[in-house]
Design a binder for these strands. Sequence first.
DNA 1: GTCTATATCCAGATAGAC
DNA 2: GTCTATCTGGATATAGAC
Lengths: 180, 180
Amino acid sequence: MTAAAELFAERGVDGTSIDAIAERADRTSGAVYDHFGGKDGLLLALLDSWVTDVGAVIGAELTTATSLDDRLAVLWRNVSAPAVGDGRWMTLEFELWTHAERNPELREHLTRRYRGAWRGIVAAAGGAADDAGDVGPAVIGLLFGLEMMRRIDPGRVTDELAVDALRGVVAGTSTGASRT
Amino acid sequence: MTAAAELFAERGVDGTSIDAIAERADRTSGAVYDHFGGKDGLLLALLDSWVTDVGAVIGAELTTATSLDDRLAVLWRNVSAPAVGDGRWMTLEFELWTHAERNPELREHLTRRYRGAWRGIVAAAGGAADDAGDVGPAVIGLLFGLEMMRRIDPGRVTDELAVDALRGVVAGTSTGASRT
DNA sequence: GTCTATATCCAGATAGAC
DNA sequence: GTCTATCTGGATATAGAC
């Protein structure tokens, strides 16, 4: 799975053959098929493992963050410069999303996964624990979108910009936000 | 190019062969190579054509939108339910981004393209025309990220949520926003 | 659990004729 | 500007032995 994560990040999922993965892991393709059933199964297994790791890191860092801005900065840091993987897992995450668009089984898996993440955001981003609705998708969406923009023009998306934008989204989607 | 756009959206860029594109266009692969030089050239041409179309639609719709919320709704509608293409161009856009991650030439092209888009956002989203910095990447990032979330769970990301979140981001990243 | 060997198929790309 | 023909390489997936 480590070999697959590396190669997927380097060459993309479609650009990586099972043989290449097996070779990097000092195995043969037969073993990969036996374990994961194919590339999709490997993708799913990888996805699950990654979510666990990043979630754990964020959870740990949040316990030492006091202000809202600190907590938002923790989220952003784990997206823009994560300690997990080789620091490029967002590339892989976007690719998983693309694949899910055309694979119903994978899409259902992602739906479940993201619903959990959205729920987790409420505690991290707001104080309003009763607001289980809009903050989650808005904050995660913004985190992902900002990272996309940052990859396109790294100098343009600063940490300060990210926290400013996140604070705005939290204010705009929390319960009781003013609506024009 | 229409054939390519359709097939890319249906099966993904890597899942589409030049032969398949040529066949749908009632041509042969030789003609495609002659015109675009290969799949990457075709991708670039497609990208340019799409930007022109969507930009024109948004520009037209913005002239009839008066309030800030109306203008933000115009932006969101053209991302979540665009009139251009078969309504699924965001899938293609995300895939182009993924390819750009591993193709410097394509990435430079995207950087130029997005810088233009960010500039265009200032007029649409704010009143503050002097604030050429943070609003653009923040708003486009949020639009893209929200659309990602909507694809994962369509019922969860309503138009109202999107406009609320966009309004928050505009407030948070405009000049003079309060910083804690 | 992993290997070898192989079946089957399709990809990108180019040369040269029309 | 488009075609046919073809070279060359690599992909998925499985069967069966160890």
